[in-house]
Design a protein around this nucleic acid. Sequence first.
DNA 1: TACTAGTGCAACCAAATGGTTGCAGATCAC
DNA 2: GTGATCTGCAACCATTTGGTTGCACTAGTA
Lengths: 130, 130
Amino acid sequence: MSRTSSKATPQPKSRATGKADGGALDTLFGALSDPTRRLLVERLLTKGPATATVLAETTPLTRQAILKHLQVLEAAGLLAHERSGREVRYRVTPQPLASAVGWILDTAGQWDSRIDRLRRLSNSEPATKR
Amino acid sequence: MSRTSSKATPQPKSRATGKADGGALDTLFGALSDPTRRLLVERLLTKGPATATVLAETTPLTRQAILKHLQVLEAAGLLAHERSGREVRYRVTPQPLASAVGWILDTAGQWDSRIDRLRRLSNSEPATKR
DNA sequence: TACTAGTGCAACCAAATGGTTGCAGATCAC
DNA sequence: GTGATCTGCAACCATTTGGTTGCACTAGTA
């Protein structure tokens, strides 16, 4: 049952389609979900812009692996690159983090107002407890 | 050559090992990276706790698919479930979102201080531009 | 010029992910 | 009791992901 009308809609079944406008958050949170990538962001922030080869020297990973991570981060808008000569230097552009915080605060806000509503309605229950 | 000493370390090559202490952020951001899951969180917040079957009725997905998403969210600490009779009811526990915001703010903080440092050193460059 | 260092691209692989179906086990209502 | 619902597994499948290797290309440098 459950699957209300899935058979009726001939959707291409590709789950990569995304929900359009939410796609930015997808790639953003997705980019942040990998420890290597968070590490790269932190490293680029603390030690400044660097190339993929230089970044790869400090990890057990290949340059290509690092490159892929950098591209994921760039696709999420967290990085930008510029080339000087034969080198390609990556730097952090943390603006997209604002949308992440935005979604989280929005959500937490709904939670807060919900707690508030519950408190107002029933004064006996602690609402969350943990 | 990059790959400094990968051949020397006989690491089990399983990428699921995680970086231990950062694992919480992994699962957290990972859980948030899916639009369906964010939708579930929002729905559970706005309309209150619900069972997997009920949640599945409003989406084109199977109950099992929803179930898996709920389990991912629960593993990230964003959900908790309690059963009453034969029903299992899920509710949001948004506390872990704090760690996410924490990491982001830390990172943004490093960025701010770095801009500050740059501004103090060279007064001519706009530092970010975009 | 020839050599070296850095990047770009493509093929390939294993594991994780998101989804399905089918069925067994509880629990409620009659 | 019987039947209808709801949950819980398990198997299975296709796509994505994270990683590797190998090689071609480009840009500095001796």
